[in-house]
Computed example of a mutant assay.
Amino acid sequence: MKTSVLITEAPAQEDVDVILQGLIGFNEQAIGMPGAARKHFAALVRDEARNTLGGAIGSSYYGWLVIDLLWLPETLRGTGLGTQVMRLSEAEARARGCAGIRLDTYSFQARGFYEKLGFSLFGTLPDHPPGHTRYWLAKRLD
């Protein structure tokens, strides 16, 4: 079989699906746990008109809740809403039977905020982006 490698900035959904399903299948076979059962979640901060102002977005899979995005506008920071979003996300993780929560942040973002909530650093990547550091944190719930 002759093969080639192509770089593209716009992979077709079918291409993404081939790779994703192949990896999920490999992982499920290796760990004996379904990974395709990814379940999304959002902890949304809304105003009285139900406009979303910020919050957290993520999903649970392989027994962990992963927070992909957390953001609040400057005017809402320091009001306790971020802590409330994180507490509700933790409650959701517990309700889903997750062993813990993981997330990442940058040196110019909120590492201290997460550590105050009981998260521990487990990885760093200096100079990502250049001049800054990326941090990975986790909090075990079990």
Rank of each mutant, 00 (worst) to 15 (best):
M1G: 15
M1A: 14
K2T: 13
T3L: 14
L6F: 13
L6G: 00
L6Y: 12
T8K: 11
E9M: 13
A10H: 14
P11Y: 08
A12R: 14
E14G: 07
E14F: 03
D15R: 11
V16Q: 06
V18W: 05
V18S: 08
L20W: 12
L20T: 13
L20M: 13
L20P: 00
Q21P: 00
L23D: 05
I24G: 00
I24H: 06
G25D: 10
G25L: 09
N27F: 10
E28Y: 06
Q29S: 15
A30S: 10
G32Y: 10
G32C: 13
G32Q: 13
M33F: 14
P34L: 12
P34G: 07
G35C: 10
R38E: 11
R38T: 12
F41S: 13
A43I: 15
A43C: 15
A43D: 09
R46C: 15
R46H: 08
D47Q: 11
D47H: 12
N51W: 07
T52Q: 12
G54L: 05
G54W: 05
G54D: 05
G54S: 07
G54P: 08
G54I: 04
G55Y: 00
A56C: 14
A56E: 11
I57M: 14
S60L: 10
Y61P: 00
Y62L: 15
Y62K: 07
Y62D: 06
G63A: 04
G63C: 08
G63E: 02
W64G: 03
W64K: 07
L65S: 06
D68F: 02
L69E: 14
L69W: 14
L69C: 12
L72R: 05
L72P: 01
L72Y: 03
E74M: 09
E74Q: 14
T75K: 14
L76V: 01
L76F: 04
L76Q: 02
R77T: 01
G78H: 02
G78Y: 00
T79Q: 05
T79M: 05
G80N: 01
L81V: 04
G82S: 06
T83N: 11
L88G: 05
S89C: 15
S89W: 04
E90N: 04
A91I: 04
E92I: 08
E92N: 09
A93I: 02
A95M: 09
R96V: 07
C98G: 01
C98I: 00
I101E: 05
R102M: 12
R102T: 10
D104L: 09
D104A: 08
T105I: 03
T105G: 09
S107C: 03
F108G: 03
F108S: 01
Q109G: 02
Q109S: 09
A110N: 01
A110Q: 02
R111I: 04
R111F: 00
R111L: 03
R111A: 02
G112A: 11
G112T: 02
F113K: 04
Y114E: 02
K116C: 07
L117S: 06
L117E: 06
L117C: 09
G118H: 00
G118P: 00
S120V: 13
F122S: 08
T124K: 04
T124E: 14
P130L: 10
P130C: 05
G131L: 14
W136P: 00
W136S: 07
L137P: 00
L137S: 00
A138C: 08
K139M: 01
K139Y: 03
R140W: 12
L141Q: 00
D142W: 03
D142C: 06
